[in-house]
Amino acid sequence: MSLSRSEVSRRRRPRWRVRTVLPLLLGLALLIWIMLPLVPVLLWSAAGAWRAPDVLPSSWTADAALSLAEPEVLMAGVRSLGLGLSVAVTATVLGGLAAFGLRGPTPGGSPASTRLIGFVMLTPLAVPPFALVMGSNVLLLGARAPSFLGVLIVLTVTALPYTTYMFVTALASYEDRFEAVARTLGASPAQVVLKVRLGLLMPAIARAGFLAFLVGWSDYITTVLIGGGQFITLPLLLGSAASSTGGEQLTAALSLAMIVPPVVLLILLARRGARGRTSS
């Protein structure tokens, strides 16, 4: 904000300087802010020995990176992926439906009840994962729910506020006219939903699904307590590596293993999004 203000005060100067230098500096500062914390992680993942006050590691090794290829780690990765995708599907579908329900004035629904439902959908945010797990664990154990199902149910509830509100904000700027136009052009209701609605909401679906995926992908406390330690995912391996002395290298490598797949997924989604936009 202050930068923009100084931009205004300097408007009398030659325009090109303000226009090119300031945004460039601001962009650079933002990039540094975003990237800097990742630098030590990257360095540690390939470091042999690295002691203060050395700025860079004194030796390098690929040991930590290679240990990621061990079957134990790969299996954990597959489980994390499965959990993430399952949470993504359930939470996105339920959240999308909830957002539609919250939106329109439906027969029999008053604004007050809409507001109440909106509030209910936000409440999982208010319950820290720890409290949610502690409360539901005994119930799930008692119900003999398989541990994967238990973790999935709890994480879906955790992810629902995110997916719901991704759709709510997207629907806020959603133009019903497109659907009306499609209908007047003779589209069937099914076509309207499939082609127009899903098409227009694709970015929101992708974003909601992605956030929900992350809830499952990165969860630690729910998986450990409800999964009973037998459902070993990447965060569990990371947690145990992080709690050991001299585990920096492995911790850093596992950290990267947790960061890279969703980033790749993100890039794929962004690409598809971009293609969708240009073709429309």
């Binding site: 664990n137 005994v138 119930l139 154990l141 008692g142 003999r144 450990v224 307590l225 009973g228 330690g229 037998q230 070993i232 569990l236 391996l237 947690g239 145990s240 709690s243």
Partner: peptide, 23 residues
């Protein structure tokens, strides 16, 4: 099968929870 935990108390808590649930 080795089940790694960050704190041994996690294992006991699991046992207590299971017993609370009647398992």
């Amino acid at each position: 099968r080795r089940v790694p935990v960050t704190d041994t108390a996690d294992a006991l808590n699991r046992v207590l929870d299971e017993r609370q649930a009647g398992r």
